[in-house]
């Protein structure tokens, strides 16, 4: 399990990414950058790269994180770990994922309390329609609003 046709972010999606657009435009946010983290095959490697990502975020003294993925199933193992590692470091984190009915989390933790589900299909499934279950501007705005709330609550 990994990235299906309807959740796949094409090269064109990355080129005009709505999430980047929304966060970069917000004058209340100092966008530090985009951290790209892969999804290795082995469990040990999954934990390693996610933990490295969290170490970066801590080292950058970030006030908050939005983490998004275009895969599900097995890829949620990586996602859950990275969210946990960031959360454990006391950094507010909001997740974005395709969930619907088909992709409920296989693993969960206490830091996964603010997740934006960007499923767009009626049945909540991998429809194999390219572009259908991908992040749009509304999803991105929702994630940023949740993060702002979370940061505020924490007194950042």
């Amino acid at each position: 399990m990994g990235i299906g046709p309807s959740t796949k972010e094409t090269s064109l999606h990355h080129f005009r990414d709505p999430l980047l657009d929304v966060v970069a435009k917000d004058s209340d946010i100092d966008l530090q950058g985009v951290l790209l983290v892969g999804t290795p095959q082995g469990n040990k490697e999954k934990l390693l790269v996610g933990t490295r990502a969290a170490a970066w975020v801590e080292a950058m003294r970030s006030d908050g994180v939005i983490i998004s993925l275009d895969g599900w199933g097995n890829s949620h193992v990586d996602f859950a770990n990275t969210v946990e590692q960031i959360g454990k470091r006391g950094i507010p984190v909001v997740g974005m994922s395709f969930i619907g009915t088909a992709a409920t989390f296989v693993v969960k933790n206490e830091y996964m309390d603010t997740i934006v589900d960007f499923n767009k299909s009626e049945e909540g499934i991998e429809t194999e329609v390219v572009g259908e279950n991908t992040v749009n501007e509304r999803d991105a705005k929702k994630a940023l609003a949740l993060l702002k709330l979370k940061m505020k609550k924490k007194g950042v």
């Binding site: 999430l19 980047l20 966060v23 209340d28 946010i29 100092d30 966008l31 530090q32 950058g33 985009v34 951290l35 790209l36 983290v37 892969g38 999804t39 990502a53 970066w56 975020v57 950058m60 003294r61 970030s62 006030d63 908050g64 994180v65 939005i66 983490i67 998004s68 993925l69 275009d70 895969g71 890829s75 990586d78 996602f79 990275t82 993060l147 702002k148 940061m151 950042v156």
Partner: peptide, 8 residues
Amino acid sequence: KKVVIIKQ
């Protein structure tokens, strides 16, 4: 507020 986007 300093924010990072992580893309997996």
